[in-house]
């Protein structure tokens, strides 16, 4: 299975088509126009950081990519499959796209191990012992194999978020979405989660991260996107984005978050 994924990744033909293509996408919450004419193309292996003030629609944008939110116009194509109301497509895309949430959303009634093996066993139909082997592999990768048989409620926030990352990885996703993964963590725990994400980036995972960790953005992102009022205001390589922002809105935002 892992072999297969690796082959897919190294296949030049696969690499040639982008991981995510969003074209002229709009979304409304009731009458509120939350995403306005979004155009974004993410290549395989690309790491994108999305930032912006709260309410700018950045979380909604990445939640549209695995259809936790439904868009009303335009198109979203993930790994060559267009997101439509066809349930089969949605389940297919969701099993290829991993997601980590701000509040981890681990399943509290299941042990760490069961959290990690649930989806592989029930969605991918992987045999249990094999799923457990994979789970242990990824728990070692996020450096908490010794917690495998505890319950999420017994772990610290940082450990829970790393379990959540391992849980997503167990599905062998092609793309990972991070929705403010460190915003609910104590400062002491942010680093351990960021280290895990950096390692993941170094392995070549396609990543879209909504985060305010600008150090992380500088270190691993290929591209930083700034959003405000539901639109993409500026998008650039991190070096350029931080040192030479073009839009006034971006300059203001950066001065506010980097100013203290």
């Amino acid at each position: 299975m892992q072999q297969e994924v690796l082959e897919k990744k190294s296949n030049p033909e696969q690499d040639s088509h982008p991981a995510v293509v969003i074209a002229n996408m709009n979304k409304w919450f009731g009458k509120f126009h939350v995403l306005r004419d979004i155009n974004l193309s993410v290549n395989n292996g690309e790491r994108i950081v999305i930032c912006g003030p709260s309410g700018s629609g950045k979380s909604t944008l990445i939640r549209c990519i695995n259809r936790l939110e439904e868009h009303q116009s335009g198109s979203i194509i993930v790994e060559g499959t267009e997101l439509s109301s066809d349930l089969k497509n949605i389940d297919l895309i969701r099993s290829e796209v991993g997601m980590c949430f701000q509040h981890f959303n681990l399943f509290p009634h299941l042990s760490v191990m069961e959290n990690c093996t649930l989806a592989p066993i029930w969605v991918r139909k992987v045999p249990r012992h094999e799923a457990e082997k994979t789970a242990m592999h990824f728990l070692e990768k996020v450096k908490i194999p010794e917690q495998a048989f505890k319950y999420p409620g017994q772990l610290s926030g940082g450990q829970q978020q790393r379990v959540a990352i391992a849980r997503s990885l167990c599905m062998k996703p092609r793309i990972m979405l991070f929705d403010e993964p460190t915003s609910a963590l104590d400062p002491e725990m942010i680093k351990e989660v960021l280290d895990t994400m950096i390692e993941l980036a170094e392995d070549g995972m396609t990543m879209l991260c909504v985060t305010h960790e600008m150090g992380f953005a500088r270190q691993v992102a290929n591209r930083v996107i700034f959003m405000d009022e539901g639109q993409i205001v500026e998008s650039n390589e991190p070096e350029e984005f931080f040192n030479n922002p073009q839009s006034d809105r971006t300059k203001l935002f950066l001065s506010q978050i980097l100013g203290h």
């Binding site: 936790l68 389940d91 297919l92 796209v97 991993g98 949430f101 959303n105 989806a119 969605v123 599905m171």
Partner: peptide, 18 residues
Amino acid sequence: LPRGQYEAGDALGLDYWK
């Protein structure tokens, strides 16, 4: 149940009944 539990299930690709 917090909504996040439903979303986490969806995000992992589990169908409604599962």
